[in-house]
Design a protein around this nucleic acid. Sequence first.
DNA 1: CTGAAAGCGCTTACAG
DNA 2: CTGAAAGCGCTTACAG
Lengths: 338, 338
Amino acid sequence: MNRSPRVTAAMVAERAGLSVATVSLVLNSKTDGRVSAANIARVQTAVAELGYVVDQGASALARGRSDLVILIAPDLSNPFFGSVIRGIKAELGSRFQLVLSVTESGVQPSAGDLRRFAGLRPAGLLVDAPSDAFLADLSGDEPLVLLDAPGLEESVAAVNYDMHQAIADLVDHLAERGHRTIAYLDSTTGTTTFHLRRRRVLDRAATHGMTVVTPGAARSIIDMQAAAYAFRDAWPLLESSGVTAVVCATDTHAYGVLEAARTLGLAVPHSLAVTGFDDLPYSRVTSPALTTVRLPGEPLGHAAAKRLVRMIDETEPAEGQPNLVATFVARESTGAIG
Amino acid sequence: MNRSPRVTAAMVAERAGLSVATVSLVLNSKTDGRVSAANIARVQTAVAELGYVVDQGASALARGRSDLVILIAPDLSNPFFGSVIRGIKAELGSRFQLVLSVTESGVQPSAGDLRRFAGLRPAGLLVDAPSDAFLADLSGDEPLVLLDAPGLEESVAAVNYDMHQAIADLVDHLAERGHRTIAYLDSTTGTTTFHLRRRRVLDRAATHGMTVVTPGAARSIIDMQAAAYAFRDAWPLLESSGVTAVVCATDTHAYGVLEAARTLGLAVPHSLAVTGFDDLPYSRVTSPALTTVRLPGEPLGHAAAKRLVRMIDETEPAEGQPNLVATFVARESTGAIG
DNA sequence: CTGAAAGCGCTTACAG
DNA sequence: CTGAAAGCGCTTACAG
């Protein structure tokens, strides 16, 4: 609007003919039996007229905590987070301000980033798919909820997916279609959720007597291009091992495989079946449409935020809620009808 | 780590046997000719030993500004922003902390969100593809740079794309392939960049004597599902008008059209050609691969952040840099060789 | 119901 | 080169 001096609570107070204490009370809705209706209105008018905005830094300083909730995720521009964030925001409402920490795809924030966030005195932290190392860095004492961090539920509050059945369905589906030797394209994020996905696929494949090839080269960050390169480089080995299907740690990895397969002249699904995890919207329009495990993002965000708010309010009950259920989705990339 | 009382600069000072003033100087690298080498080391040791983190709120309060740079975009989970953000971070370095404002896909932040951000006393604001209404709400006096906001360069610093040639190429490409009647699927974001895209397409089509059908129904937010519905609903009208190609405002819209076309039993590109804008990585693996206009994200982020930092430092030269060039990319969705 | 005042943890002239 | 002190703009007991 203008370069006029910043408007402060003192200016609002003066205009309303009241004290800054009263202004603060009104702005924080702590007026019950403490501020008269007439004065509440007076403050509100002055606030509107002056376009007053409370200084978050000063507020956090006085209060000891800001109203920031920080979401840390290794892959924020993954559209999966669109839904997660929607769930979080719906739950957080206007009481907290959601802010995202940004890192390269598939890279965990550095300890330096974390210090900085700690300096913001956040009301709470939401961390998606953390690695063990990352969690060790996370030394703050603010309320913390992990998303999709299986295996860490004992030490930290977490909201996870139950992927047991979905992964069994996925592997069974491949077995039924005659695949005897499959590859697993892993994510390099070092995240427990990826350890679990891989573990479960291997275990289920074993029950069918299938061979799972997992060469060191067959892994990448969560990025199409990187996954495409990783797959292309690993393909000679995979091919000579007799691999006829690739299970990928995420849909994004699978897209990379689809692209590489095209380059290599491999027909999907006839020469190679491909599957992912996530069920991003794009998976319905890839060539061919992608068989995957659907991880519902919005409920995850919802549940995590709800749990976090409870912790902030210290009304957290003893146990958390049950895991969210992942589901298997068969499409053309494994020869299913699209 | 522990629930011990927060460590403050005073504690660091005590441990180092120095004053808080000196501690502050060291932490802000303002030691030149002001702090002895020995004392710098002393402070650094104490900081490390105590795990001290400066309180951003207090710092911002004392300084009048935080070191937060806020990126506001209507569609953050669009993978396009992965690259934009990479460019921004590279340019911002460790001096500023990048933070993202989150909104629903295609929805501009509310005035309320903005007030809250203003309360954070950001060092600067980066706003992607704003609507006019949104800009009017943006009343703060902090340095501001717009990304992809054609037509607003006169009043506000902006970094834009030059899409002139790319759009001409796109329309010419359709004309060469015999399309005489095409549809335009717009975004409802109310953003100047979308006005421009549409305008340019219409103008170029006119030079070929092509008809462009733009029914009110043929628009949606930047979301596959929403675009699919919008297209499906508009199709009867488009079909009866003789439309053989759809130009979409974004790749995401185009994916929705691909999905709807599949549902409607329309073969792409034989019965319907489809194009987008962005050239997201997914566009290489859609069915069929998508003809589009490539908007390079990383350079955009780079240029915008660079400009913002100059403004913050008040070293901004009179003129901005030239626009970034968008390029046309022909693929199978318009019958080009993929 | 209301306000004066202390205190949150920094940064920055300022005096030495 | 160093430190004491003012001040940033809030919130919250506390006294009335």
